[in-house]
Design a protein around this nucleic acid. Sequence first.
DNA 1: TATTTATGATAGTATTACTATCTTTGCTTA
DNA 2: TAAGCAAAGATAGTAATACTATCATAAATA
Lengths: 224, 224
Amino acid sequence: MEYSLNIKMNEKLFLRNPEQTDLGKKIILFSIQLIHEKGFEDFTFKKLATAIGTTEAGIYRYFENKHKLLIYITAWYWSWLEYRVITYTENILDPVEKLRKAIKFLATSVEDDIRTSYVNESILHQIIISEGSKAYLTKHVNEDNQDQLFKPYKDLCSVIGNYILECNPDYKYPRSLATTIVEMAHIQNFFMQHLPALTDFGKSKSESNILDFLEDLVFHEIKK
Amino acid sequence: MEYSLNIKMNEKLFLRNPEQTDLGKKIILFSIQLIHEKGFEDFTFKKLATAIGTTEAGIYRYFENKHKLLIYITAWYWSWLEYRVITYTENILDPVEKLRKAIKFLATSVEDDIRTSYVNESILHQIIISEGSKAYLTKHVNEDNQDQLFKPYKDLCSVIGNYILECNPDYKYPRSLATTIVEMAHIQNFFMQHLPALTDFGKSKSESNILDFLEDLVFHEIKK
DNA sequence: TATTTATGATAGTATTACTATCTTTGCTTA
DNA sequence: TAAGCAAAGATAGTAATACTATCATAAATA
């Protein structure tokens, strides 16, 4: 049996829906590869077009500019992650176990999900680590936010925040702690890879250490 | 009596030392204003030159490119902050009080320091919040790191890490907790301003709430 | 007075970030 | 089977960006 997983994306993110055509899917597939390879600053629609074997104008029919494309692929990632977190925790009754599992999904690398043919999730995870925050660290964040472009990120954080409240209904900072988990899962990973003196995981360079740190932090904080 | 505070910057950050000439000081002063006004992506040496009343070529004599200039001003900020943290905590004996004071310096807005005529620290603080992480989130972070460009950031985190260890010598993650404090002090501030649903401070929008959250987090975590 | 140093003035190039237009291909649907 | 439409290809063009180079000039210094 074959599976396929479809994530409905906000229509303001694109001009033409990339999921509905061959070229569109290629744009997503190759842009993930190219952004990972060159970094977002050095990534251009010209280079993307050449890699795909189409023209610049072809890309512009799908995305207004490269920043919208970055928001698209990050938003896709957060939606996919929320889906995974929810499906893999729904049978767990103990809220502490649920939260533990969620943290694990955030802090651990993923393997390519075979149900999504035109997205390579393990590379996407690396992009989130290195480029993810550039999606919102702009002067037009307020307008983008009004267009709901960051909803998937907020939804994921909201799920984590609710798990935190299930563990301790009196805890005062469930949202801020949720974003702390999500952000630090990625920032600690980046620092571990590139600026190891800023972490305690420089020698082993293992994601399981980040996981241990985050669990330690979260469960000390919300302990009743 | 007049005071002046001088911070020695890494020579690899510039081509000609901006602190030693009038034009150099103007470049720092105006670039801080302009980056804050336009955001880093929309900031160009052309616009900076026009604002100062000099030419593009004039700016290029001081800085290789706008990214080096960003690293320069962020590095300056971290050095200045480390200096403040150290001087204002050196007479405090209780390590918990010391750490508490340090967190306060990180999470609270500053007023313009009159001892540094060509740097506006309160605007610089906003730049750190919105643009700071772009200094290291690049494909050339490893080369920049080899050139010691991030040393001021590391030094500051190291100071905080040591205060953490003074509070609890057995604590396992002093470096990662230090970077968590520094990063989250700024990220929570950005979210509070622009994506308030991601924090618990959306209504009041007050920095003192961020401070309370960070203290709560840190002292629960390192409690013996 | 000679010389170095900083700045100004001007010009030029490759690349980026688009926009516009016209043609072709291939798939519906009457 | 023909007409019609949507997607994609081909090509061109523009303003801005990110530089590099050169030559002149003014001020500081030796």
